[in-house]
Amino acid sequence: MESAIKLEHIYRSFKTHFWQKRKLVLEDINLEVFQGEVFGFLGPNGAGKTTTIKLITGLLKPDSGKISIFGMPRDSLKAKQLIGYLPESPYFYDHLTGYEFLKVHALLGNCKDYEKKVYEQLEKVGLKSAANLQLRKYSRGMLQRIGIAQALITDPELIILDEPLTGLDPIGRKEIKDLILEQKQQGKTIFFSSHILPDAEVICDRIGIIINGKILKVGELKQLLKKGIKTDEISLEDWFVKQVKEKDA
């Protein structure tokens, strides 16, 4: 299988204050996401999920290591053309309407027939009636959905979602999950981070666990669960808690 994302020996540190020593946030991250799969990137708060995703989308640069997207260097416009990205708890231009917002991103994503694409997406995420409403009047769930629409508008091969399920009600979560699965059906690769393990459990082909900036485990969901607990019935959540505790001990 060909890889959609490949991270090799990624290190990344931050300086909180300029006189302080740099704090290592990601340590030797090696990760491969294959084409056509749904990959769940799981980990506790502050583990480094968002940092990893920002490195992939080019918002941050690694201290060292190599990132490739479908075999291309991450910074190339060609690679970026293939990515759709939903940031963590996204904020969008308050004063733009849903339509205007999507139009900007369609144009930025080099969409040929942007008008048609915009309406398609609005339809898909169920925001057609809110097309001419300013984004500041959107609810949390609506914002999450317009954010996903913005990510999908270029019809990307690789969809990267940072906590797409956080802050949504069960119906909202169901809708997003369906959307993800629909994309998977079309052969797209989905990489998402999450805290909400039961949901991840339903849609992921594979998961990766990151704790304290290090990849703990990567693998197929079923195998991991079996290996960890030796029974199928235990939930991912229980397994996860156990893993974290083991690690701390």
């Binding site: 989308t57 918002l59 416009l77 970026k80 940031p87 969008f92 930025l108």
Partner: peptide
Amino acid sequence: EKRTIYTVIAKPVK
């Protein structure tokens, strides 16, 4: 500051 630039940077824009 409002992080509105995130989605823009991720698009194929120079």
